[in-house]
């Protein structure tokens, strides 16, 4: 007799998802755009899959009181529409167009991408740039982590096996914020070689807030903190952008894997993303 090597459960409610996850032996199946390949190729052999695609509550995207709440089944393509307003919507729209292709974006989810924690994925860095709060639900209730706490390495997060990433909250960007995205990618069917995601806020001609995130530059999402500090307090001019990009490229000074070519790419991408952000301020 053939023994089923893997069980499959199509959950109907959030509680059912948590119940199946409780013994720590199950994997969540969200968009499947990373997990299905691992399962069909046997690269991953979870004991059980809990499919969340029939849990209607998980499709909710809500924007109230300056906070965007994203549930586990909000597909990438939702961020292509003009459903989200303000500079936050602008930034998410410019990023999402680069994630895979329309059929991938019709299935793949933002929370799945965060849980997967691919070092060259865009959403984890966007979460770090935007100051996201990530809610995990498990047998002992909910806990909230920042992006810095959540991402612990390539394909590795602080999520425990019995936990579901149940909501991600992205605060709205203040008025006067310009957002920018620039990438280097060999083919649209591939993850990026590198990318910069930035959000810069200007008030009375001076930079009051700056977040610069770098994709595929470290094991976890990277913020170019020194470059951000270099921008804050000054005018958002050409010279400031060039200087911030130079500082960004000095990141992780002791890392010998950061060749001159990669540093050059970081400088160029940061400069382009900041220039784009200035146009949107």
């Amino acid at each position: 007799m053939k023994v089923a090597a893997m069980d499959y459960v199509a959950a109907r409610s959030p509680d059912e998802v948590l119940a199946v996850l409780a013994d720590g032996q199950a994997s969540v199946l969200a968009g499947g755009q990373s997990l299905v390949l691992e399962v069909t190729s046997r690269a991953a052999q979870p004991r059980r899959l809990v499919d969340i695609n029939r849990v209607a509550e998980f499709e909710v995207l809500d924007q109230t009181d300056g906070m965007l709440r994203v549930a586990p089944l909000v597909r990438h393509r939702v961020f292509e529409s003009d459903a989200i307003d303000g500079p936050l919507g602008d930034l998410l729209r410019v990023i999402v167009r680069h994630i895979g292709h329309p059929p991938i974006r019709a299935r793949g989810t933002m929370l799945g991408s965060l849980a997967y924690a691919h070092p060259a994925a865009e959403w984890p860095v966007a979460a770090a740039v935007l100051g996201a709060e990530l809610d995990l639900a498990g047998p002992d209730g909910r806990r909230t982590l920042t992006a810095e706490q959540f991402f612990t390495g390539p394909f590795t997060t602080a999520r425990r096996p019995e936990e579901l990433l149940v909501e991600v909250r992205l605060p709205a960007l203040p008025a006067g914020t310009g957002a920018g995205y620039a990438e280097h990618r060999r083919s649209h069917a591939k993850f990026v070689e590198g990318a910069a995601i930035v959000a810069v806020t200007v008030a009375d001609g001076l930079v009051t807030g700056a977040a610069i995130g770098l994709v595929n530059v470290g094991p976890c999402p990277v913020r170019a903190r020194a470059a951000e500090a270099a921008l804050i307090g000054g005018p958002f001019c050409d010279a400031a952008i060039i200087e911030a990009a130079r500082v960004a490229a000095e990141i992780d000074a002791d890392n010998r894997a950061m060749t001159a070519t990669r540093r050059g790419a970081i400088r160029m991408l940061t400069r382009r993303a900041l220039t784009q952000a200035r146009e949107g301020v």
Binding site: V36, L37, A106
Partner: peptide
């Protein structure tokens, strides 16, 4: 069979998807 080429594209519930990336 890894989602790159699209030769397997079909409509599921009206959406064009990679059928190699659904169970």
């Amino acid at each position: 069979a890894d989602g790159t080429c699209g030769a397997c594209t079909v409509l599921v519930d009206g959406d064009a998807v990679r059928s190699c990336l659904m169970l």
